[in-house]
């Protein structure tokens, strides 16, 4: 009798669990979209850009974008060597030339790799730092101090940070892409893997550039940066407890932001290519 009831109850419990998990995910997504909507609204309002907010935004941009340039160059260089050397070797073994290899490299870098690497740099350097800073501010009562002085924490803390994440991912993705192409070519050429001249390479690269690349590059960097920024801010401000909880919140925030970036990237690829793997979804 007990076994029979267990057999009946187990699927319902599983469904309940799945339902709860689904609703929790929906809730998270709604929170992120709400924060992003508020950010857009506040950033368009002239009165939001008071002198302290401008200062906070400039400092955040300096830390997230400008200070991250050397890291982006290093990431791009390492990624470029791997991608271009591999692509050249494979095209060699299959008897291809620059006509085959350049479009492949260009699309892989511009449409997928550069936005992803830029997101990794920004989340690793700044996203986790933002979550840590905001959670420490919350724990030490600094958010209450701002609120008590009539300063909206959303305008003063969240909006400048999310905007600077978006701008940083976009700018760093351009730097990563440039670094990947240049370093990849130089290393490949010096090792003899790439045999065509720099002029051929650059003219081939420039020829590959079309408006459709922007359709991939711009949404991927902006949407991924926005999601990463919103997740780090939400996690930082949703801390409950003491300062010993801060490392846990920061680590979780980094993982959640990375997961979101990969998910956003995948969803955008599906939407833009209009196909899921090899299947057309029209």
């Amino acid at each position: 009798m007990r076994l029979r009831s267990a057999v009946w109850v187990a699927p319902w419990r599983l469904m309940e669990l799945l339902g709860k998990e689904f609703l929790a995910r929906c809730n998270t997504l709604i929170s992120i979209l709400a924060i992003l909507w508020a950010t857009v609204g506040l950033s368009l309002r002239r009165s939001s850009w008071t002198s302290p907010v401008r200062t906070i935004f400039a400092r955040q941009l300096l830390f997230t974008a400008v200070d991250a340039v050397p890291v982006a160059l290093r990431f791009g260089a390492a990624g470029g060597v791997l991608v271009i050397a591999q692509a050249a070797m494979w095209s060699d073994s299959m008897g291809g030339d620059s006509e085959v290899i350049v479009p492949l490299i260009w699309r892989a870098i511009i449409r997928e790799l550069a936005p992803l690497l830029a997101c990794l740099v920004v989340i690793g350097r700044s996203g986790i730092a933002i979550a840590t800073e905001l959670s420490l501010m919350y724990v030490h009562g600094e958010i209450e101090v701002l609120d008590a002085q009539g300063i909206d924490p959303m305008t003063c803390l969240v909006m400048p940070r999310i905007l600077s994440m978006i701008i940083s991912v976009f700018c760093l993705a351009i730097i990563v892409a440039t670094s990947m192409l240049l370093t990849g070519y130089l290393i490949g050429w010096s090792m003899g893997t790439i045999r065509f001249s720099a002029r051929d390479f650059s003219s081939d690269v420039l020829r590959q550039f079309d408006a459709q690349d922007l359709l991939f590059f711009v949404p991927k960097t902006i949407v991924a940066g926005a999601f990463a920024g919103a997740i780090c801010c939400i996690d930082g401000l949703s801390i409950r407890g003491s300062s010993t909880d801060v490392p846990r919140v920061a680590a979780r925030s980094g993982i959640r932001a990375l997961t979101a970036v990969f998910a956003v990237s995948a969803v955008l690829s599906i939407l833009i290519y209009n196909r899921f793997l090899i299947f057309d979804i029209r």
Binding site: T50, S51, M137, E142, A148, Q149, G150, C156
Partner: peptide
């Protein structure tokens, strides 16, 4: 709230800003 001044019971500072920024923050924001 911008018209209310408050001396808190306990620490009440933005640790990431210097004293000048802290003291003048609300005035400049408003």
């Amino acid at each position: 709230r911008s018209r209310i001044g408050r001396v808190f019971d306990g620490p009440a500072w933005i640790q990431n800003a210097n004293m000048m920024e802290n003291v003048t923050l609300a005035s400049r924001h408003h």
